[in-house]
Design a protein around this nucleic acid. Structure first.
Lengths: 228, 228
DNA sequence: TAACAACATTGATACAGATCAACTTTTTTG
DNA sequence: CAAAAAAGTTGATCTGTATCAATGTTGTTA
């Protein structure tokens, strides 16, 4: 982890609503953003700790996950640039309900949560954009509740592959996560994640060598995911 | 289902924030509340349908649940008087992500969602109270995600019993749900729900005859729930 | 670049929980 | 109030998935 002095924040301007809103409200001087670089594997946010800053992803990718019972975590989603971390206090949740860890080196910008709340309360557009993001994550979690509970492993893996495909907006992509993490994203064991991948490969549904994966039969994957 | 003409709404005044806020904002005249009585088993809110009104529970109890894959639903929680249904549009989710069905005859009050949004936008206290409720439900769902995924059946049933105990604020209560619904609340099969209940009874952890349940060893139940 | 750690893969085994089946009890309703 | 439907119960069986074990591969670092 490396703290970088704020120098203009060109990146933030491009990647986050907070800046635009602060400027609009003539509160840019209050921002005092802190840029922090996290190395791969470092923890960016720890479950059950007090949230003092909202964090904007500027570069890199990270996993959002919750602690499971026997060291078995569940990955909720993958965070990419312009995603926010730590908005929960706006909704009266002072402590984080999830962890975030860097999947690659991550450039982030931290902004005092009190200022976020002020902007939220005084700017309706900003409020709506945060509410929308929050609302989306709620419906996403509900979907996940169903799939993790009722789909079997092939359906879960298919869903994860489709999720990653949508995330990278490509049917051929380099897996940014390990097999173990793919398993955590699907809430199954690592061994079964591998097994299903090879099954899919043998069935011609995907191509795979190492970290590079190509989804060949999107329709089939969607069926497998939907049927469970 | 029976629609009742609005006559003063004394019950609503007592049971909901919306009224107090509307009065404060001098918008009481805009409320146009509709009182609807649902009979046991009737659907109050259907997943994937457009939400036009917020609904306040005035009397009775209902289950909030999501459609599973093979007609296997998951009950998220039980709703009691003063609980709200259908606030999602405030967070830019136009369609319901869940169903609500009456567990007993339910007296409800429907209020146009547009008015709720207006109140939300113009009154910070109201906004905070809705945000707080929304935030709480998010953390509750996250907890459920873990428990439904990683606990085994004894842990799940113990958790459900503790949930009901907290809900009714009593260690001895009449189960308002069937065994099948207890199973859906725990995301296990009906048969296993019954089996675990009899196990708990034989082990002296609970007392049970028919619908009446007494939690005798709260500490033990908490351990079982926490351990999985 | 050698040594070690992390990651990936495959097969064999064990087990928790779903499903099936048969039956009893309670509740609903014509 | 009788008949039918819904709810509750128990045992036997089946199956999907976790776990264990062994081994290969890739990546990291001293």
């Amino acid at each position: 982890m490396r703290t970088v002095r704020h120098e203009g924040c060109a990146a933030c301007h491009l990647k986050c609503d907070i800046y635009l809103t602060a400027i609009e409200m003539q509160m840019e001087a209050d921002l005092e953003p802190i840029h922090i670089v996290y190395k791969k594997h470092e923890t960016i946010c720890r479950q059950k700790t007090l949230i003092t800053h909202a964090i904007v992803m500027l570069d890199g990718s990270a996993k959002m996950y919750i602690d499971g019972l026997n060291n078995k975590n569940i990955i909720l989603n993958i965070l990419l640039p312009s995603n926010y971390i730590g908005l929960l206090p706006v909704y009266s949740i002072p402590e984080s309900t999830y962890n975030v860890a860097a999947l690659s080196d991550c450039y982030t910008c931290h902004i005092d949560i009190g200022l976020i709340s002020t902007l939220y309360n005084s700017n309706q557009n900003f409020m709506h954009s945060l509410n929308q993001a929050f609302g989306k994550s709620v419906s996403a979690i509900m979907r996940k509740l169903i799939s993790l509970n009722q789909k079997q492993i092939r359906g879960k893996v298919a869903e994860s592959l489709l999720y990653l495909s949508a995330l990278y907006d490509a049917t051929r992509f380099i897996l940014s996560i390990t097999r173990k993490e793919l398993a955590e994203l699907s809430a199954i064991s690592e061994e079964n994640a591998v097994r299903v991948l090879t099954e899919f490969k043998n069935e011609g549904i995907i191509d795979m060598n190492g970290k590079e994966i190509t989804l060949k039969e999107m329709g089939l994957l969607e069926t497998i995911s939907a049927m469970g």
